[in-house]
Design a protein around this nucleic acid. Structure first.
Lengths: 355, 355
DNA sequence: TTGAAAGCGCTAACAC
DNA sequence: GTGTTAGCGCTTTCAA
């Protein structure tokens, strides 16, 4: 089919293009004109060209969510939450995956070209270059994740320090005394803050020995490899704190491959509380960082900024909540539960404990 | 930051906007002009407005991937494959999630408005309404999935009949004699063709008794619920064929909750061969429908059609491959393997057998 | 090599 | 209530 323009509609209806436009957009027009124009549009199969309309109006009604790794379910969860808010306000959400193609700097520049009215960014690394690009872009931005103090941007962040404290306190309470932290790449934003959070959390337990290692990625495969390095050593920890659920799952697989039982021989915990935690056995204890809530708030902040561009920058921190499942129970408690009864028929989760 | 236009760049550089445009786009221009304009653009922080450029050029350099349920990892896999091809050709890929917001008809209409140069569609249901919308849209389309015969559109499809035959033959070979098919919603395209495939496949085994049930969704939760209905009955099957991996995982959980052991008491298989199959224990036997390949081919077909709009419609069918893991082995074979040695350190998969 | 000007398709003054 | 016209920001003839 060939594209039909408003000029052809106007011609067909025998009115001016202005009248056609008005009739189509619900502006003031006579009933007769509206009828003629709508009939013409329907017969011709007219759909207004979004590009021309955007150019004229200066708004695209498109918002972008830019994320490095859409393969991680936690970002899908965020996107779903964002989509819900955004589409309710008449915007379309487009996803820009920064992972496979260009760096997030390019993405910011690209989105600054004007095909979106605003963007939500989940950067894995916050470089000076990125901050410069963000400062320069004319497009409203909300950043999901930590930014340097003093940066004047709308931000939504998780509370890594509390998250790690919840996990560490829980493991110590369950009797663990030698905890290994398997982080993602240490130069990423989540990597940095989760490491700092872990280090802070363990100072409260001076008798517990600890160590840290970086996985090459926040993925199952990288978590597996890193956990193998930890577990192959001669001093085997009795608990692994993973920087996210994917790494945690990799760690569980690594432990099993070495003939270890989780949680009897070693406890494992994750972060993000993705759906995966309930898919594996034992269920993976995790900290819910409020992905859904963070996505929702980010979308609301963005809409608010678009409505009022000069408003002050807001920073919202979402509180984490520990969700205990089988992977971190003490030996005694674990034996009190039959593994195959862990599944709850509705949630597929074992239990939830607010943090 | 306020948006800067090419007019301001031209003014700053002391040249006409035509020269500015030429200098910026690598057209013919004197070295001096280029230098002045580039300097001006850099100082002013100019980025060309994509909307205006698109209106002028008639192309957006954007492609869309429209999918109902991005929560299903198989679609993420497809998207990744598409993104790879598309970005190599200088296009941006935007994701339109049709699930949460509007129907796919609305999405097609919306994308027909012109902010994308083409779209790849994974419709869950192919209605007459959708076909009409597809026939009318001026935007090139490639459909992932089955279309009615005679529809003249580029299409990439999986081979459900072969896929189901691979699974059923395998289960029968492993000694299963009472197979329950847990489908997704029967009115969806995958639901229809997987059901038909199953029915065809079992005719080759007249001694095997079978039955079918629809889950409400292609999700873990829906699979769990449907499997419970199957397993709670008095005649318990010795194998469950799930219409996708998520349903299969739900079925494994359901079996475990009833105290059944997989695969000893009951075998379970999935479809799609997503990463999840290697995450759970036992590993889920699944049929790889070639999501990566289908995504790649779809992207190539779309690019080809954009380059040559009048070319004949192509239909490409991608061959499936059975991947056997622990969930479907016969009792004897399963006992030959220690469950915690299933994991391969690189692939996290147990074994792969081409179909 | 450069500048003036047209025009992509649309909406919104503005005058009638 | 309707038509004429300007113009969103850009690229590209067309003359010079």
């Amino acid at each position: 089919m060939v594209r039909v323009t408003i000029t052809q509609v106007a011609e067909y209806a025998g009115v001016s293009i202005a009248s056609a436009s008005r009739a189509l957009n619900g502006q003031i027009a006579s009933a007769e004109t509206i009828a003629k124009v709508q009939h013409a549009a329907a017969t011709l199969g007219y759909v207004a060209d979004a590009t021309a309309r955007s150019l004229k109006l200066g708004r695209t009604h498109q918002l972008a969510y830019a994320v490095a790794d859409i393969g991680n379910p936690v970002y899908v969860e965020m996107m779903t939450a964002i989509e819900r808010v955004v589409s309710a306000s008449g915007y379309r959400l487009v996803l820009s995956s920064t992972g496979t193609s260009s760096s997030s700097v390019d993405v910011v520049r690209d989105l600054g070209r004007g095909y979106v009215d605003g963007m939500i960014l989940s950067p894995l690394r916050v470089t000076d270059e990125l901050l410069a690009a963000l400062a320069k872009t004319p497009t409203p931005v909300v950043v999901l994740g930590r930014l340097p103090d003093g940066t004047s941007l709308d931000t939504v962040r998780a509370d890594s320090v509390t998250a790690m404290r919840l996990v560490v306190d829980h493991l110590v309470a369950e009797g663990r005394r030698d905890i290994a932290f398997v982080n993602g790449p240490g130069d990423t934003t989540p990597g940095t803050f989760r490491r700092d959070g872990f280090n802070t959390a363990v100072t409260a337990h001076p008798l517990v020995s600890t160590r840290s290692i970086d996985a090459d990625d926040f993925t199952i495969a990288a978590g597996y490899a890193a956990a193998r390095r930890v577990l192959d050593g001669d001093r085997r920890p009795d608990a692994i704190v993973a920087a996210n659920d994917l790494i945690g799952i990799g760690a569980i697989r690594a432990a099993e491959d070495l003939g270890l039982t989780v949680p009897d021989d070693i406890a494992v915990t994750g972060i993000d509380n993705t759906e995966l935690t309930g898919v594996i056995r034992p269920g993976l204890t995790s900290v819910d960082l409020g992905a859904d809530e963070r996505g929702r708030v980010a979308a609301e902040l963005l809409l608010a900024r678009i409505a009022e561009p000069s408003r002050a920058a807001h920073t919202v921190t979402v509180a984490p909540a520990l969700v205990v499942r089988g992977s971190s129970l003490s030996r005694a408690r674990a034996q009190g539960r039959a593994p195959h009864h862990e599944t709850d028929s509705t949630e597929l989760d074992e239990e939830r404990a607010a943090g």
